[in-house]
Design a protein around this nucleic acid. Structure first.
Lengths: 161, 161
DNA sequence: CACGATTCAGTTGTGCACAACTCAATCGCG
DNA sequence: CGCGATTGAGTTGTGCACAACTGAATCGTG
């Protein structure tokens, strides 16, 4: 048993409820605040995330968006279709590789960026958190996510230690 | 202008992409790890959260579960129906208030708890994070969620400062 | 060149989150 | 008591997340 037995299983279960709930609830609360702020733009929170990376890069293949946002085509395909229907994004098959589809920001999408500029500032003001705090939290969450994504599924099986 | 203009809007947008993504990705990565660990129990992550609060309280009205997990009936009703179909939970109308429905852990649900005891320990071992770290992160996320939930929607409207 | 393996986007099916709604039970005030 | 307002669970519809799959394009190796 390499796991230090400083806590009984019962205690682990209680702590687990707390951390699971906190992360889950914080993510949904964040989502809710953005949902409200993004209403005027007609974007959902995940659509906003996609637009953020597209605004940074101008155009990206679906795969590239997926790598940056940790999302697969099953999520991105319909989402991009909706962004295209809204007129913010254009999709076209790549000429070099017919398997690949490139998403590009349209003029309307670029205009949307201007309107979106005020969103994070308003949210930062409403939360009252300062930039350093946010940046620190971001780093810890990023490290946590990286570690979680790096876990071998076998480690979670009952038999393994 | 109470917001200090230490950063241009452009910078805010870039930082926003980072924090939004981090929280979003961390929550999904967490979800994924639990999805794997909970496979053997036949539970999804949100179902596990519901079982955790039910294991603590034995039985709760739907409203009580919703308050503890920040979920509404639209999410809980079908979820509890699935837990009932799996045999882990029983639902019955309250005698005192016919509007209310109480969810109660069945014998099979109680057995499931025993099987679930190992889950958080395995995950803690796999992540390699120590309890103090987790507890600290939990507190910060809890505080963030509380602040976000306390925001007046009006604060997020374009016109307001 | 040929052909099996891989890669990429998209589809299908399941479940969660949430808004908007229905409907019955309960509450509260006149 | 009577009746409008509120409360509680449930339903419906939309969108996201993800597993499992399809099908076409490309790659690699013989």
């Amino acid at each position: 048993m390499e796991t230090p037995d400083t806590l009984p299983d019962e205690e682990f279960l209680r702590l687990d409820r707390q951390i699971c709930f906190s992360l889950h609830a914080a993510a949904r609360a964040f989502n809710g605040v953005y949902r409200e702020a993004l209403k005027e733009l007609g974007l959902t929170y995940p659509q906003y995330l996609v637009m953020l990376v597209l605004w940074e890069h101008g155009e990206l293949p679906v795969k590239g968006i997926g790598e940056r946002l940790r999302l697969d085509s099953g999520t991105l395909s319909p989402l991009l279709k909706r962004l295209e229907a809204a007129g913010y994004v254009e999709r076209r098959r790549s000429a070099e590789d017919e398997r690949s589809v490139t998403a590009r920001v349209t003029d309307a999408g670029a205009e949307l960026r201007t309107a979106a500029l005020g969103v994070p500032r308003r949210i930062a003001a409403a939360t009252g958190l300062d930039v350093a705090d946010i940046a620190d939290l971001r780093e810890r969450l990023g490290a946590l996510a990286a570690r979680l994504d790096g876990i071998d599924p076998g480690e979670l099986r009952p038999a393994c230690g």
